[in-house]
Design a protein around this nucleic acid. Structure first.
Lengths: 157, 157
DNA sequence: CAATCCAGTTTCATTATGCAACCATTGGAG
DNA sequence: CTCCAATGGTTGCATAATGAAACTGGATTG
């Protein structure tokens, strides 16, 4: 087959994430949803995307458990799309993308918004990666290990 | 035109990041590069992707300043592709994607690797978002603010 | 200097994307 | 209740992107 390659069975968690949200529009749809949009028309006008594509994407996101389609909320008999826990879990990915642009974009002056701490109104710090014991880690301080086979009924001793 | 829509002029930093690395393969190429791969053939066999599209992606990544093509390193007259600072800056995005899969994937047992602290061999903590003063922030603790106009020659007073 | 490897490019078939037109319900106005 | 607009899609068609495989041309090996 010549279908676009899928990473569904891939053992790499990054590839698996991309399988679900790695296309052009999904992340932006999730961004809008995190901003409170829930209706088909809201997504469509705010993102300026074709309605057929939006329909396909929304279905895929629902299938992946990222959105859930719920029956109305403002009384009307229409549907709406709300984020699941899994969908809200995308937030750190959005922050990482945002911070990457803020740090490396060639024209940062074109970036319209900054993410701030609501309480103080001050910019948030860069995402931090820490060890179990709280040590701040750089990429070089990390490595990949094969996942332990796990899933024993009881402790092995 | 009916070209795939571009987010190049978009003011959203997330859209701008997607413009550079938002396609199916780029992130995986960067993942391999972070793992030390540098040669065309290495990327091609490790990712199992078609050579023509690898060629296109590598060019795009170079154009975006994420990879740089450098002349050899092992003596041979071939080229190689090495990450720039901007490219290495993608690391947190990969961690965020990985952690999202680890937390929400339907079949986490299929994930082959875990990211550990090299020193202790223990899993790294979830990425943390903190305020300037160090307070740990949840998504609800944050908001977007318009970017201040910035770029004054001197302090405004 | 022939055989092979490396790093692509070309060709062609298939798929995805995007625009525009169309259609079925829903919601309101009268 | 009737008509009309808005909502939330679907369908058709043209164009662009993707992928497999064959091809190319310089490097390297023997």
């Amino acid at each position: 087959m010549v279908k676009r390659t899928s990473f569904e069975g891939d053992s790499c968690p990054i590839a698996r994430a991309l399988e679900a949200i790695g296309d052009w529009w999904s992340i932006l749809i999730i961004r809008e949803a995190l901003f409170g949009q829930r209706r088909f028309g809201e997504f469509q006008t705010r993102l300026g995307m074709a309605k057929n594509i939006l329909a396909v994407r929304l279905r895929a996101l629902v299938d992946h458990g990222i959105l859930r389609s719920a029956p109305a909320s403002d009384g009307s008999a229409y549907q709406e799309y709300v984020l699941t826990l899994k969908g809200r879990g995308v937030f750190p990915i959005l922050v990482a993308l945002r911070q990457w642009s803020e740090e490396f974009d060639e024209h940062p002056e074109e970036i319209a918004t900054i993410l701030v701490d609501r309480e103080k109104g001050r910019p948030v710090r860069k995402l931090e990666m820490r060890a179990e014991d709280g040590r701040l880690l750089t990429p070089a301080d990390t490595m990949l290990k094969p996942r332990p086979a796990a899933k024993k009924r009881r402790a092995s001793a």
